[in-house]
Simulated scan of single mutants.
Amino acid sequence: MEDRHTVAGDSNPAALVEYQSEWPRRAELLLARIRTAILKIDGADDACFDHIGSTAVPGLAAKPLIDLQVRILPLPAEAELSESLAPLGFERARGSRPDSPGVDRDIPRGSTRLDLRIWEKSLFWSDKHQAILHIRRTDSPWGQYTVWFRDWLRANSEARERYESVKRALSAQQIGKADYDDYTRAKTAFFDEVQAEFEGWAAQR
């Protein structure tokens, strides 16, 4: 089902669909295959494998793309990852624009000055599985934020409804655009607004 804001015949790269109950199982199976594929890479034994993003939050409308995350240290070389993940149908994502967000590094957040290397990442895409794979350092703040944010939305229906309302409004603004980069950037305003709230919630768990 398309986002209710999408007009028939108009292209919307950020079109939303209603939550699909099969998304967690799809993510679980993909993560298991990814874990096996990178098993011989340095750091894989201690890596964390996460289903993140809106498809990981029951009841939340989302773009029908499964967001997955591996948190690993050290961050593997791009060539090593590409060789390991290619048989699964994942290839290195380059972004639709030269400044597409979150491709080679996450946008630094917070007031604490950190080594810029901590924000480095590798982004992979699978057309076959309609999945996005974020590979971040284990000590990446973004890696932790994505998990906290996911769990906070799962536990907080009011926040989940607020976020969906923001997503639907922003999605409606993307009709006719070539990609969803603007949608991704615009969601940052909501993230900025609620970060202290979900970090505080996580600290009390």
Rank of each mutant, 00 (worst) to 15 (best):
A37E: 01
W23R: 07
D67H: 06
S82E: 10
K128L: 14
V57K: 05
T188E: 15
E91P: 00
Y183I: 06
P13I: 06
A37T: 11
E83N: 11
I175P: 06
I118C: 11
D45Q: 09
L39A: 15
A32W: 08
H129S: 02
L31R: 12
N156E: 10
L16M: 06
G43S: 05
R160W: 04
L88Q: 04
N12M: 02
D104M: 04
I118T: 05
R150V: 04
A14M: 07
A155N: 12
R105S: 14
L88G: 03
A77Q: 14
S21M: 10
V166G: 04
R185V: 07
S157Y: 06
E2N: 15
P101A: 01
A86R: 15
R94N: 10
A86C: 10
V103Q: 08
E2C: 08
A186Y: 06
E80W: 06
A86P: 07
S171R: 04
R168E: 12
S126L: 02
L114I: 12
R97I: 01
P101M: 03
W148K: 10
G9T: 06
Q174E: 15
A189W: 00
Q174P: 08
T36N: 08
V57M: 08
R154A: 06
V103R: 09
R117G: 15
L75H: 01
H5D: 07
A202E: 05
A37R: 09
R162Y: 01
G176C: 09
V70C: 00
R150S: 10
V103Y: 04
V194H: 11
V17K: 09
E22Y: 15
D10C: 05
H5Y: 12
F191R: 11
P76T: 01
W119A: 02
A186L: 03
L60T: 05
R109C: 11
N12E: 02
K128M: 12
P101F: 00
H5F: 15
R160A: 03
P76R: 04
W125A: 01
R94P: 00
Y19C: 04
S140T: 00
